[in-house]
C-alpha cells in the first residue's frame, strides 16, 4: 500500500517539535507510553529545530521552508523515510516544506542556504505522518483493542481533531493516498477511542473547527470564542471529556478556561485531555502515570470520580 508508512518494519523518525518538549510534556510522556505498549518504536531526531509553525511563513517564505527542511534532512540522514510528528502545526509545516521543495528552483535555493549554514541538503523525499495516523496505520483498531486492560467503559468522549491534522490535503496528502484518514470528516481518532472502549459521541461537527490557537495571544476574542465552541459543541453532543491530538489546541483551550467561564458560563466547561493520555488509561496506566493532573482542566478529578486509579 503506497499510502501506508513505508517501508513496513522501518522505525520511523520522530520529530518532537518544541511543544512536546515544553508545554506539551504530558502529551510526550503519554505518547511514548502508548507507542511502547503497542510496540511501535520511534527514533527521535535529537538535534531538531523549531518548524516555524504558521508564523514564520508570513515574514519569509524561504526561512519557513528551510526550517522544516533541515529537520527532514536529518531524518533522511538517519535512513528514515517516514517522519512522525504529534503536533498539528508541525505536521502542517513539515508537509508544506515538502510541497515547496518539490519545485527544483526552490529546492536549489534553499539547499544552497542550508549548506552555507552547515546543515544537510533535503531532497523532498520524506513522508509526514501525524502520530494518530501512524498508530491507526501500524496497530489499527484491532491492535489497540488487544492492548486494552481497563476499557473506558461509559466514558463519553468528543474526538477533537482541529485544523491542521489533515488540512490542507495538497500538503498533508491525507485523503489522497490509500490508508489515510478523511480530510473533511476524519475518523481515525473515533476508531482508536472506540477501540479503547470509550463511548465516542457522534454528531460533533466541531471536531475539525479551529481552536483559535494561532491567534491565542494576538486576538483573544477569536481564540476564546473558538475554544468555547470546541467545548460547548462537545457538551451538546453529550460528551464528558474532549480528546485532543495537538499541543497547541490543548494549551490554547486550557489557557482560555477562565475567560470561557467568564464569557460563556461554568456550564460550558469540560475536562480536556490528549488522546494518548486516554489511551494510556485504557492500557492500564494510572491517572498519575498518564499525567492527567498536568492538564489545567483537571481530567484527573473526572477520571478518579469514575473509578480510575
Amino acid at each position: 500500500m503506497s499510502g501506508a508508512t513505508s517501508p513496513p518494519g522501518e522505525t520511523p523518525a520522530y520529530y518532537p517539535g518544541c511543544s512536546m518538549d515544553g508545554l506539551g510534556k504530558a502529551y510526550e510522556v503519554s505518547c511514548q507510553m502508548v507507542l511502547g505498549t503497542l510496540g511501535l518504536p520511534l527514533d527521535r531526531i535529537e538535534e531538531y529545530n523549531c518548524c516555524g509553525a504558521t508564523e514564520v511563513k508570513n515574514l519569509s517564505h524561504d526561512v519557513s521552508v528551510a526550517l522544516p527542511s533541515r529537520n527532514l534532512a536529518l531524518a533522511r540522514g538517519m535512513g528514515r523515510r517516514t517522519v512522525v510528528a504529534a503536533c498539528n502545526g508541525c505536521v502542517y509545516s513539515l508537509a508544506r516544506a515538502n510541497d515547496a521543495m518539490a519545485d527544483p528552483a526552490t529546492s536549489a535555493r534553499i539547499n544552497a542556504r542550508l549548506a552555507e549554514g552547515g546543515a544537510p541538503a533535503y531532497d523532498g523525499s520524506a513522508e509526514i505522518r501525524h502520530v494518530l495516523e501512524y498508530i491507526r496505520q501500524r496497530a489499527g483498531a484491532a491492535g489497540v483493542r488487544a492492548a486494552v486492560t481497563a476499557p473506558l467503559k461509559g466514558i463519553r468522549v468528543a474526538p477533537y481533531y482541529g485544523c491542521l491534522y489533515s488540512r490542507p490535503k495538497r500538503y498533508t496528502k491525507v485523503g489522497l493516498e490509500p490508508g489515510r484518514d478523511n480530510p473533511e470528516s476524519p475518523y481515525f481518532l473515533d476508531e482508536l477511542l472506540e477501540a479503547c472502549g470509550a463511548d465516542v459521541v457522534r454528531d460533533y461537527p466541531a471536531k475539525t473547527i479551529c481552536c483559535g490557537g494561532g491567534h491565542a495571544l494576538s486576538d483573544l476574542d477569536v481564540s476564546v470564542a473558538f475554544s468555547a465552541s470546541v467545548l460547548n459543541e462537545a457538551k451538546r453532543a453529550g460528551a464528558d471529556v474532549v480528546a485532543t491530538i495537538c499541543p497547541l489546541g490543548q494549551i490554547n483551550i486550557e489557557n482560555n478556561l477562565d475567560r470561557i467561564r467568564q464569557s460563556f458560563g461554568e456550564e460550558v466547561l469540560l475536562p480536556v485531555a490528549y488522546f494518548t493520555q486516554l489511551m494510556a488509561l485504557a492500557f492500564g496506566r494510572s491517572v498519575r502515570e498518564a499525567r492527567l493532573r498536568y492538564n489545567f482542566s483537571r481530567p484527573d478529578l473526572f477520571f478518579r470520580a469514575r473509578g480510575f486509579a
Partner: peptide, 8 residues
C-alpha cells in the same frame, strides 16, 4: 487564523 479550510 490560518485554519486552512479555504486551502483545503
Amino acid at each position: 487564523v490560518s485554519c486552512n479550510k479555504c486551502v483545503e
